[in-house]
Write a protein that binds this DNA or RNA. Structure first.
Lengths: 347, 347
DNA sequence: CTGTTAGCGCATTCAT
DNA sequence: ATGAATGCGCTAACAG
């Protein structure tokens, strides 16, 4: 027999049994109206629908799927912060495409902050919501890692040096150094930095690279978001406070574009008066002519998809041999018209 | 009793019963190793794991969730073609953010073509995979609409004039007319068109608008993809074939940027020798100085999220009053440095 | 047209 | 440490 549910005070969501009772019909009938069968009397249907409305009934998806017995398609959840438009696209488009190819569903979580991330992970674990996890620009603590391991949910990280899980990274500290050194090689005496939200590890690391070569005393300001406007405002602040600045390292291309506009609007020339360099090499940076440190963003999503697919035993035969391991991709100095070249080229 | 499963020839995927039998244990034990319990003898655990490996066992997510009894969080599936990077981002980022806010999970499907779309929809319907559907730049036939209605899955469309469902659109024919007329007002005698993949309705409609004012005899070429390179190639073809062209309408900003590069590389000036206009007003188009027809892409995702949330009974109290209906958003002519102004401004 | 019944695959007491 | 029995919420025969 059914209905041993001791739902104190209606605290649990209603089921078709509740609807059936309230409408004075059997559960099969409820199921029928739920699935739009035409073998139901109009009066009955109306009554059932009313009951559903009264109780704010929502069919349980898991139960439905279990009953219909569809394919148990694997599902991976991807958690990503929406810092940067082009970074998000560059990663998620290939990720989505490659997972589609592997016949894996993708559930996307737009993560706001650390708390949000943990709430989402708690739910995912508690509800067994997915078979695999992709983390973009964020990691998890060892306890969480152990928990995921316990329930058998593999994890890969992109743009974050997670220990204990496959991770794809670039050397952002080195990137920061290379960028700064490039401007100094071009003759910069007084370099400054525009950095981004400190919750992003990549920004903190590029910052670290800058400081390592420019010195801790070099001027720097932090933008809350990585947009053109923020870059422009940050540049204005910097230029106001330190008129002698002759080089600007920006931890992101959008910030650099904003800085470029601000510098020019003040009648100063780039790169003659002020050199400028960004990070990422986002689309269109070549037509704008921004010097930048390129990171192969396009490869991030594909790597994540292939790795998690392999971990789920869904890898292609072709790649089946490959082991899933952490990888560090090379960055590349791209010199264009916002910086002065002087000999060496790439890293 | 269990196991009346008549699995002919092992055609169905293995369950914990199969594992249990093969490992010579009870299903409870299988469940224990599945969930990483430590109350299992090492030898037993190993045996079970081996059996799982042998049979390529994957736990059924629906069954797990039904058993653990987590929250039945609503889920919406979004189907989108990945034509254009900025369009995809502009829509999916707000969509994801707004759904997150409404506590709705988002499953993303990267649709390749019409067949793929139908396969995905078939699965979604058969497996009852979601409670709501968002379609970007695509629609469905009436039969599908009826089917979705039967099983109670609401649908909203963005960038496609779906009949029978709430849809958010812009008037792309009008947009094409406005763009073309703008160049003619600026003195163009010999306008031409670079259009995009014909499977995209928006491109076909902009094309239609162009033809309506420039005439069917005006030169035009179709790019297979909307990238800078494709735009450049298309422009080269056009300029080679019709040296007297003095205005170029491109159905997408990226195509226009490519065309801009090609025109300049031939020593022709923009807009003096050749005027140019794009569509969308993607990010950075202002710094590049491209004249374009702006469509409010940023609002697409948010509208879709709010609409589907309301349809799912998840709308805010604040907006609860609002009915969900189709909307047409205004487009706007943005004149910058690739076209000549002459009087009127916006539409 | 409608109610009864039997699983769907797994987690989870309770015994042992 | 392990197995048997029960229920999660729903769909789908099968009767009536």
């Amino acid at each position: 027999m059914r209905a041993l549910r001791k739902r104190f005070l209606m605290t649990l969501p209603p089921t078709i049994y509740d609807i059936a009772k309230r409408a004075g019909v059997g559960i099969a009938t409820v199921s029928r109206v739920l699935n739009g069968s035409d073998r139901v009397a109009d009066a009955t249907r109306t009554a059932v629908q009313q009951a559903m409305k009264d109780l704010d009934f929502r069919p349980n998806r898991a139960a439905r799927r279990l009953a219909v017995g569809g394919v148990n398609r694997p599902r991976v959840a991807a958690l990503m912060p929406f810092f940067s438009a082009s970074f998000y696209y560059a990663v998620s488009a290939p990720l989505s495409a490659a997972l589609t190819a592997a016949d894996i569903d993708l559930v996307l979580y737009n993560i706001q902050d650390r708390d949000h991330k943990n709430r989402v992970l708690d739910r995912i674990v508690a509800e067994r919501a997915c078979e695999g996890l992709v983390l973009l620009s964020m990691g998890v603590r060892p306890s969480r890692l152990a928990e995921l391991e316990r329930i058998g949910v593999p994890l890969v990280c992109v743009d974050y040096p997670q220990v204990g899980a496959p991770a794809l990274t670039v050397d952002n500290v080195e990137a920061g150094k290379v960028a700064t050194q490039h401007l100094i090689d071009g003759g910069a005496q007084r370099p400054a930095l525009i950095t981004g939200p400190s919750r992003a590890l990549a920004f903190r690391q590029r910052e670290e690279g800058f400081t390592a070569v420019a010195g801790a005393a070099a001027p720097q300001v932090r933008a809350d978001v990585v947009t053109i406007d923020a870059g422009r405002a940050a540049a204005a602040m910097l230029l106001d406070g330190h008129p002698d600045i002759d080089a600007l390292v920006c931890v992101n291309d959008m910030l650099a574009v904003g800085a470029l506009q601000e510098i020019r609007s003040r009648g100063r020339r780039v790169p003659e008066d002020v050199q400028l360099i960004g990070f990422d090499d986002q689309p269109l940076m070549d037509v704008i002519g921004l010097s930048t440190i390129r990171q192969p963003m396009d490869e991030f999503g594909g790597w994540a998809a292939r790795s998690i697919a392999t971990l789920l035993g869904r890898g292609d035969a072709a790649q089946k041999v490959s082991t899933v391991a952490s990888v560090q991709l090379p960055i590349e100095l791209v010199t264009r018209s916002t910086s002065r070249v002087s000999g060496k080229r790439t890293t």
